[in-house]
């Protein structure tokens, strides 16, 4: 049952993946200049040997479908090409930068989820109260704030004015080398970027959690819970909150791609050495090949995480029968 479901979802994922690769190819073909010009950009422009190699590989004189097939088969083998600027295969470059981005993303998603649930619950337990309007307005304000600007404002406050937190980077250059102080050091550097990235999503989760809780409060089983003699607190935390969190989990999957995008600007603002800053560097050196590689691998990541979330969801919500 479970196995068949997994196979089917994996099959769908592969189809989506191939289509994404086709979209990438389409962009390259539509761009001004030929495929190789675009791919190499200025990064390989100075290296005729590399250009020649690329032309050889893609066979630009061959029919379109052959080129597409070549492009796809490269991607399937996770051969994303070579970056002359960094003197490294694109795949290795991405994998090297990935951990920093993952650390940033997951710490901010954790902050966003925890904060969003807390504030959403606080607002929904007293709808239309002062507390509710304060939380809802703040959430809407956070929702309207560009991430990079929020980051800059936080730097002004906490690094420039108060001087309590580092304004950029991932670690102090000449810091102590024992494991504890490295962890402390990285965490200190992580605080501002992860809060910045979390702000927007915390606002989304707060709003969704509030709306979802208000919905659930109208359900019959909540009336049953009250009729059991539970206190309002018990009704909220044992029955309403667990049921309200479910939609948050599916939103988490939908938003993952957007978090990846958000991490580009946040990493640039804070000089966080992850995929986002790599994308920024690629942008400035016009290394389209590297940029495409980052885009493709990010998409793969989104698909994988969504697959995992589907499984998690079916485990959390007993109404969903995985085989059905």
């Amino acid at each position: 049952m479970m196995k068949r479901y997994l196979v089917r979802r994996a099959g769908q994922a592969v189809v989506v993946l191939i289509l994404i690769a086709c979209v990438n190819f389409l962009i390259l073909k539509l761009a001004p200049g030929d495929l190789v010009d675009v791919l190499a950009g200025e990064s390989g422009g100075s290296d005729p040997h590399y250009l020649h190699l690329l032309r050889e590989q893609y066979g630009l004189d061959r029919p379109l479908y052959v080129q597409l097939f070549q492009y796809l088969s490269n991607l399937v083998q996770l051969d994303l090409g070579y970056s002359f600027r960094f003197n490294m295969p694109v795949r290795d470059l991405i994998l090297m930068r990935l951990p920093a981005t993952l650390l940033l993303m997951f710490s901010s998603l954790a902050i966003a989820l925890l904060g969003g649930i807390t504030f959403g619950v606080a607002a929904a337990r007293a709808p239309r109260s002062l507390r509710d309007s304060l939380i809802s307005t703040t959430a809407l304000l956070a929702y309207s704030t560009p991430l990079f600007w929020a980051g800059l404002m936080l730097i002004i406050l906490f690094s420039v004015k108060f001087g309590v937190l580092p304004s950029g980077g991932m670690a102090t250059v000449d810091g102590p080398k024992d494991i504890v102080s490295i962890i402390v050091d990285v965490s200190r550097h992580l605080v501002l970027p992860s809060i910045t990235l979390a702000l927007f999503y915390m606002a989304t989760y707060t709003r969704l959690m509030r709306a979802s809780m208000l919905d659930i409060y109208n359900m019959d089983f909540v009336r049953t819970a009250k009729a059991k003699g539970l206190t309002p607190h018990q009704v909220a935390y044992r029955h309403v909150v667990p049921n309200s969190i479910l939609p948050l989990i599916s939103l988490f999957g939908v938003q993952l791609g957007s978090v990846l995008g958000g991490s580009v600007v946040v990493e640039v603002v804070f000089g966080w050495p992850g995929l986002g800053s790599l994308a920024f560097d690629a942008l400035f050196q016009r290394d389209v090949n590297l940029l495409m590689g980052i885009l493709f691998l990010s998409s793969v990541m989104v698909i994988l995480v969504n697959l995992a979330i589907d499984l998690l969801y079916s485990w959390l919500d007993p109404r969903i029968e995985v085989g059905a």
């Binding site: 989506v16 994404i20 993952l256 957007s258 600007v265």
Partner: peptide, 24 residues
């Protein structure tokens, strides 16, 4: 819907960056 799913899967902001970078 499959095509829609494709466009929903690709991280939006990164996708915009690539498109704008490639097409100037």
């Amino acid at each position: 819907m499959r095509i829609t799913e494709v466009f929903q899967t690709i991280p939006n902001f990164l996708f915009v960056i690539v498109l704008v970078a490639v097409f100037r």
